[in-house]
Design a protein around this nucleic acid. Sequence first.
DNA 1: GAAAAATGTTGCTCTAAAGCAACGTTTCTC
DNA 2: GAGAAACGTTGCTTTAGAGCAACATTTTTC
Lengths: 188, 188
Amino acid sequence: MHEALKKYFRERTEIQEEKLDELSPYFKEKLVKKNEFLLREGEVCKFNYFVVSGCLRLFSVNTEGVENTRYFAFEGKFGTSFTSLITGEPAIEAIQSLEKSTVLSISKTDFFYLVEQEPAVNKIYRNILESAYITTQKRIYDFQGSDSLGRLKWLLEQQPMVFSRLSNKTIASYLGVTPYTLSRLKAQ
Amino acid sequence: MHEALKKYFRERTEIQEEKLDELSPYFKEKLVKKNEFLLREGEVCKFNYFVVSGCLRLFSVNTEGVENTRYFAFEGKFGTSFTSLITGEPAIEAIQSLEKSTVLSISKTDFFYLVEQEPAVNKIYRNILESAYITTQKRIYDFQGSDSLGRLKWLLEQQPMVFSRLSNKTIASYLGVTPYTLSRLKAQ
DNA sequence: GAAAAATGTTGCTCTAAAGCAACGTTTCTC
DNA sequence: GAGAAACGTTGCTTTAGAGCAACATTTTTC
């Protein structure tokens, strides 16, 4: 198993080294080009991805063609459309690589099998869901409560690396403003 | 244990009837007046609540004094500030009853003890987190993608009972619009 | 590495929703 | 059940941010 994923497990569970090696074969390394899609809107999501290097984003395109980004998964994070993975329904969001990336993929079947069978994976899954809950709760309050400058400052504080690695267009689609507005805000 | 909570467990797990009776003493019935607070912003959350009848809301007040509602827990749902419950940090949201309600409360300590010890409770917790994930993902896309009329229609579709049971002021604080705007939108 | 494509900036105009005020209606409270 | 307080509606004004256009800059492609 890739060292980065071992680290992820060790930091969150009491897992034995042998157990880590047992889990290893479930995860397959995959190289992803910049802008490549791992999932298209409308497809059923079949994999969970752990980002070793690079960055993925989850986004959806509305009826007017405007992109809407919900989440960035940088190195050391899991990223997938859990909603589609859990329900088995077609995803309402796409997964795209924003940089040349290396990910470890595990199939939906294997993942949920391990969640049931391996206490460490059960714990990891709980941990992912808890983190997602916390992140989203904060996002809802911070976004609904403030104007676009406020949201920009919030993102600068929470995820500064976004600004050095991603395009303004992408950041705008996360903040829920047009690239015009973002450009003007940054001039302050 | 209250019949409504038994039903909740039966619908989501393979639990034995004797096990339900074993879990019963952990849940204490509590009557809550309309507008009563179960948690104030800034307090550490110590309980998880299952709503037997009535309705709770989770909300926060921003620096300008504007209320911001994130979630309504109607009968048959768990409602608490999981973020504070999980992290042990002071809550950034308050829990308030919107109607005369009956809830079953379980302490944080007991709850997480059961999550570790009882597979059924582990499953229930996972289920709560998964549902929260799915609901919030949809909410983020639907809110960020559309204008206030679109959000109103979305809420009408997703949770119509909100409109018959809650005040316009409360609904406006959920939709992220002023009560003026909501009043005008409804005139269409 | 030159041409083409995508991205970023800035001026101007337009619009959805906020803010305020005034007034009607419902609901608490004792 | 009478008075007070909270809530809801509607007209008018203001404003943050969208939309368009034109141009500058960076990135991709062959």
